[in-house]
Design a protein around this nucleic acid. Structure first.
Lengths: 226, 226
DNA sequence: ATTTTGTGTAAACATTAGGTTAACATGGAA
DNA sequence: TTCCATGTTAACCTAATGTTTACACAAAAT
């Protein structure tokens, strides 16, 4: 199964670097966005919820380290991967960076090939998610192979999108999925649908299941709970 | 750090390096084992099931890359973390290494400090999938993934802003956050809200938690304390 | 080809929880 | 006292979500 393209945000004040990295990463099938300083990085991160953020350390209007700290202090960026770029092989700041919560560290001058493979390595590890297993949660069974949901043995027919939605949420019970996440996982990043579309599907699932197992976290997203 | 100590296996043919790394990692509380060539590395890996394996690329009786490939082909080593050490900043082998399934890559000459922080960063990343980012402070648990707070197992529902506020304060217990800091972290720099807004949210959190864990530092800000 | 059925999306509207404000209360320090 | 910073409360307003209906489109059935 082809996953949806990952979103990557790159922040650097040097346009050349921005372009080289963008080019190489989009060629790999990533969806690349850019920012040219710290504040813009934060702003765009909040809109986009990228899967990975590549931060130059030395940037105007907030350094990469500062940006990282600010984002990491917010719950919704706990899962976001962060890679630092730095001109100096300055050991101290390298350590500082990693302790701040970065996931990797790449020295300039940047080799596009190396960067690309590090990015892949990061995603490979994170992506090792469960796939295609039958979920059993309380009295609810969700079988992605048979494309079937049953409650207490009673079968329920869901439409494709409804099923995908339920399966996504149920794959990590309790975990809150942001609307953005849901969109990019189920619809893909490039597809544009209206704001109410998710709600409508959520409603249908709730209605069909009868059981109240999807909780709304207002301003954030939805989660599966029993 | 809680939980059982992590097991780390180090494979290198230079005794000096082995010793330096072992020393530094065991000082950090890791359980360290060593191997002096590729075959020994595989053997010990099978006995020990380490959480992390640090492999020198250039080793007699199977290179690090070969060891990595062999281990990765077995299901039980799918999740094991692997770091490569290399003498050269040889780009080609670096890429090869990462594509082979390594999780990180460190160049020689090795700085113990850098290695140690990379190791920590790796574990943090992996641990994060479950509980790493959950804050546990006394009897209070704050789980940003589930967007949920519980005291003595009793779940408490917070609104978004309330949760963000609590999470921010609790992320650095004892540290005082200035009102300005709080504003810029949670509301953003451009948003303007009245003076009382923070107080009101603080109040709601205090009220909902029941426990008195947010202290006012008059004229300065707020801090989380138990 | 035509009809039927089901799905996904949009648009319009209803509803509510969350966030903010404003007005007033308190309490400590100078 | 008089200030000033923060606490408290309740009313208000809005953004976010819920709900319903309608329609386009495709697949299946006729």
């Amino acid at each position: 199964m082809e996953g949806k393209p990952k979103k990557i945000l790159i922040a650097d004040d040097e346009p050349d670097i921005l372009e080289i990295i963008s080019y190489n990463l989009s060629r790999e099938g990533f969806e690349v966005y850019t920012a040219k300083d710290g504040n813009e990085a934060i702003e765009r991160a909040k809109q986009l919820h990228p899967d990975l953020i590549i931060l130059d350390i030395m940037m105007p209007r907030k350094t990469g380290v500062e940006v990282c700290e600010i984002l990491r202090s917010q719950p919704m960026f706990q899962d976001t991967l962060i890679i630092f770029l730095t001109a100096m092989s300055d050991e101290a700041s390298q350590i500082k960076g990693l302790e701040t919560g970065a996931d990797d560290y790449v020295n300039k001058p940047i080799s596009p090939k190396v960067l690309v493979s590090r990015v892949h390595a990061l995603f490979r590890r994170v992506n090792n998610n469960e796939t295609g297993k039958t979920l059993k949660l309380g009295n609810i069974q969700i079988d992605p192979v048979k494309f079937m949901v049953s409650i207490d043995g009673q079968e329920i027919v869901l439409a494709k999108k409804e099923f995908e939605l339920l399966y996504l949420l149920a794959s990590r019970p309790g975990r809150v999925f942001l609307r953005n996440e849901i969109l990019s996982q189920i619809w893909g990043n490039d597809v544009i649908v209206g704001d109410r579309t998710i709600d409508v599907h959520i409603r249908k699932v709730r209605q069909k299941l009868g059981v109240d197992c999807i909780t709304t976290v207002k301003g954030v997203g939805y989660k599966f709970d029993i």
